[in-house]
């Protein structure tokens, strides 16, 4: 039960709109955590604060022995230069709702970009490892295709391989299946299920309650920028304490 991620008092506002109202969250290694909640409750913003795609206005995120974006100096958090922040960010793999593949790179090019440019691997090494990952997500045959030639499900599998190529400590998923046609959702959930089985630590924002029930070790429900439930899937999903969580779940489970 080693701690992998610890979010402490995360607050975030856009203008005068307070989206996150001081969130705390612990994630241990090997754990699969699903974040559920109504649209606009701040799930994406929270995930993006965890890897500093958005800078929180208050609070901080500790990842594997270091605070994201800061260093502790004389009792205060001193902001890090961008290069060191990027190095920290590369420890958290991110999978986006809209894939965000590099349009001018092949499938293989997408996967080797990070290892080559950031980790300084040789092209041969990066390609050999990338092919292994593409194999794992069933995309090896498409290695020399361009993103525009792939289906949504295929793009998302490549995006997962690209994130895995950095050998991140934790994988973050922001609604990885929401932009997909229903018949393609299964192939992505299957890849994620395999990752979970292999012991990958994952934080998954999702609307797939079935996936949460089956795969998650723990489920968090966010409402209006607050964590209202945090516990085992069967307890949170079947028997939530919070009345607003009960209304939310009854709507999505209906």
């Amino acid at each position: 039960m080693t701690l992998a991620v610890k979010a402490v008092g995360i607050r975030k506002s856009f203008g005068s709109h307070e989206v996150l109202k001081g969130l705390d969250l612990d994630v241990t290694y090997g754990e699969v955590l699903c974040i559920l909640g109504p649209s606009g409750s701040g799930k994406s913003t929270f995930l993006r604060c965890i890897n500093h795609l958005e800078t929180p206005n208050g609070g901080y995120v500790w990842v594997d022995g270091a605070i994201m974006g800061y260093e502790l100096a004389r009792g205060a958090l001193q902001e890090l230069p961008v290069k060191r922040l990027r190095a920290q960010q590369s420890q958290l793999g991110m999978v986006f709702q809209h894939f965000n593949l590099f349009a001018h790179r092949t499938v293989l090019g997408n996967v080797i970009e990070g290892p080559m440019v950031v980790r300084g691997l040789s092209r041969a090494d990066a390609e050999a490892r990338a092919m292994g990952l593409l194999e794992q997500v069933g995309m090896a045959a498409k290695a020399s295709s361009y993103p525009s030639q792939l289906s949504g499900g295929q793009k998302q599998r490549v995006a997962i391989a690209r994130a895995l190529a950095m050998e991140p400590r934790v994988m973050l998923f922001d609604e990885p299946t929401s932009a997909l046609d229903p018949e393609l959702v299964g192939e992505i959930l299957e890849v994620m299920r395999n990752l979970a089985r292999g012991g990958t630590t994952m934080i998954v924002v999702t609307h797939e309650i079935g996936f949460a029930r089956e795969v998650a070790d723990r489920v968090v429900v966010m409402i209006d920028g607050e964590i209202r439930e945090n516990g085992a899937p069967q307890q949170v999903l079947s028997n939530p304490d919070d009345p607003r969580v009960r209304t939310f779940l009854s709507r999505v489970l209906a």
Partner: peptide, 26 residues
């Protein structure tokens, strides 16, 4: 699209690397 820039950041690419390798070629 902005998403590609964010993807590059999550891989750990610096702003300069992102500009040179992802944005400018396109």
């Amino acid at each position: 699209d902005k998403g590609q820039k964010e993807a590059a950041h999550t891989l750990g690419m610096t702003p300069g690397q992102t500009m040179r390798r992802i944005i400018l070629p396109q």
